[in-house]
């Protein structure tokens, strides 16, 4: 693959009730491994995927929330969270995982990957993509 495309993954489902969140994460990692330009959006119940403090020990299933911390290593550092979705669920950015990346093109500093945006801003972000994949 020589051509780089702008991929947007739209995540709308809570993490454990269905398989969508994990499937999305796997496809995200594969796309990023092929050096595509990947952005993520978390809206609706998708914001629950990156809630901090998840502990699935008592359910006996895999807790994949630590994997979101690896996204920075995969150069996935454009992660947009819809403010309206957070508000409806009584959440703020402090309730989410702190996802960062190391800025290799600039000063190698740790920078935040997460951007809380309004619905209006999200309209523009979605409009700029070549491929939109919805989970």
């Amino acid at each position: 693959m020589s051509e780089t495309k702008k991929f947007l993954f739209v995540n709308r489902k809570a993490p454990y009730g269905t398989i969508y969140a994990w499937e999305s994460l796997e496809v995200i990692l594969i796309s990023a491994a092929f050096e595509q330009d990947v952005s993520l959006v978390f809206i609706d119940d998708g914001v629950f995927q990156i809630a901090k403090g998840q502990d699935t020990t008592e359910l006996g299933i895999k807790n994949f929330s630590p994997t979101y911390n690896a996204l920075g290593d995969y150069d996935v550092n454009k992660i947009y969270i819809e403010k309206e979705s957070l508000d409806a669920r009584g959440l703020t950015v402090d309730d989410l995982l702190k996802l960062t990346y190391e800025d290799e093109d600039d000063d190698w500093a740790e920078k935040d990957s997460i951007h809380v945006v309004s619905s209006a801003e999200l309209v523009d972000i979605m409009d700029q993509q070549d491929v939109v994949l919805s989970f």
């Binding site: 990023a32 290593d73 995969y74």
Partner: peptide, 15 residues
Amino acid sequence: EEYQIAPAVRVLTKA
């Protein structure tokens, strides 16, 4: 242990 995945080769090399 930390991330619950085996890293892609590009990521492994960098890390």
